[in-house]
Design a binder for these strands. Structure first.
Lengths: 222, 222
DNA sequence: CGCAACTTTGATACAACTCAAAAAATGTGG
DNA sequence: CCACATTTTTTGAGTTGTATCAAAGTTGCG
């Protein structure tokens, strides 16, 4: 059921399960499962948006290549997250699998048809678009902070979204993180070691991060 | 009329009139005109979103204050632009008038009621939210570029939106521009003089900018 | 006209970038 | 399972773009 508080209700608390989207728009249930290998393209910028996708397992990233060749990552998508929804025909960004990933896809044309006659579906699309907007607005705020604050904020975002109880297994590389945070790979690496030196985190391996001092990280985030 | 190509049609060409929103959702026609003086608050972050607004004359800015006291401007709104729409009850950002401004406001509750039963209204809200999302995504890309590129991009955005034939009368201060671009006021000022030295722009007065070499500016923007 | 706010210019500092190389992790074939 | 090649991550040294601090011009309003 689609309740409506304000215009459309959807909880904004970070304690929500990552797959709340599944409640709003059950892509996985009606979608076709598709498998992508590490670094393979899911869709390209400018292409017609044929499908919308929900991550089942693995992870995906959306990105743009800037004129100087740098890559800016727009967002990371984890299991339960929906991506690739476009208002208009063409994809605004490209998307790739970060690691081997299973994704559930439904045809956009059919969704569009449903939406035209079903206000509930339109409301669900509105909720999803609003969520992306909020994410992008947070991203803007992230990019005007210093390296330590960006990295801390990224780590906190990741624990919140994976519900891993203070410990994360990052699916993405340092380069991915750097391109998301608008930093270089070296700065990300140095900042992580700095946070480790400050005992805010532990790095048992490069991809594994233990948040040992949440208070400190939140102070950097705030 | 609300056409639908893809999910919801709305032209993305920058040559569109700034007040295309008025065609989608004629706030001005059914809204109440309200007057705000320079720097006065239109709404505050966290407040319940009672109204949505359309600029009639003047200009508005949305912003957040960061923990370190800096201010990040989310967007500038010019005549015809709609702002203050929230999916959820509370405003995500604060809004102020940049200069004396007339704004047309309609009650959100009534809009919400209409939207619940009218798929056309919901589609219009979806289109507006999608527009904001695109704006925020562009903002992200802006913030990872260097000072000259950010300022050039900002100036081009402003001419595009004001249709002033290569000449702009900026309603906002250097501080506003700096807080939008994630730079300091000094860097914005220096960059403008640099662009003037390069004959890309002319500055007859501080608030008046003539884009004398669009090609050069677009090269920086791209 | 005079004061306050805004903008520009100058000198210096520093955070993040660049270039370079070492170290660690990951994958592959024998 | 180990040896080797490749990729990824970390660390180091030096550079640079933007911030900071300071002060001088400008503009506009009461």
């Amino acid at each position: 059921m689609l309740a409506a508080a304000g215009i459309v209700s959807h909880s904004q608390a970070s304690s929500e399960p990552a797959n709340i989207d599944a409640l709003v728009l059950p892509v996985a249930r009606i979608g076709t499962p598709m498998f992508y290998t590490r670094n393979s393209e899911i869709f390209g910028e400018g292409e017609d948006a044929e499908y919308i996708y929900q991550v089942v397992s693995g992870a995906a990233r959306t990105y743009k290549i800037l004129s100087d060749g740098r890559r800016q990552i727009g967002a990371f998508y984890l299991p339960g997250d929906i991506f690739g929804l476009e208002i208009g025909t063409a994809h605004q960004l490209s998307a790739e699998a970060i690691c081997n990933a299973t994704v559930s896809a439904i045809k956009c044309s059919s969704l569009s048809d449903l939406s035209r006659n079903d206000n509930k579906i339109t409301h669900a699309l509105l909720a999803l678009t609003a969520r992306e907007l909020q994410r992008a607005q947070k991203h803007v705020l992230l990019l005007v902070r210093n390296a330590q604050e960006r990295v801390a904020s990224f780590l906190l975002e990741m624990v919140d979204r994976t519900a891993g109880a203070g410990s994360i297994d990052l699916p993405m590389s340092r380069q991915d993180i750097a391109d998301y945070l608008g930093l270089t790979i070296e700065t990300v690496s140095r900042t992580l070691t700095l946070l480790e030196d400050q005992a805010a985190i532990a790095l048992p391996s490069a991809r594994r991060v233990k948040l040992t001092n949440m208070r400190e990280l939140r102070k950097l985030d705030s």
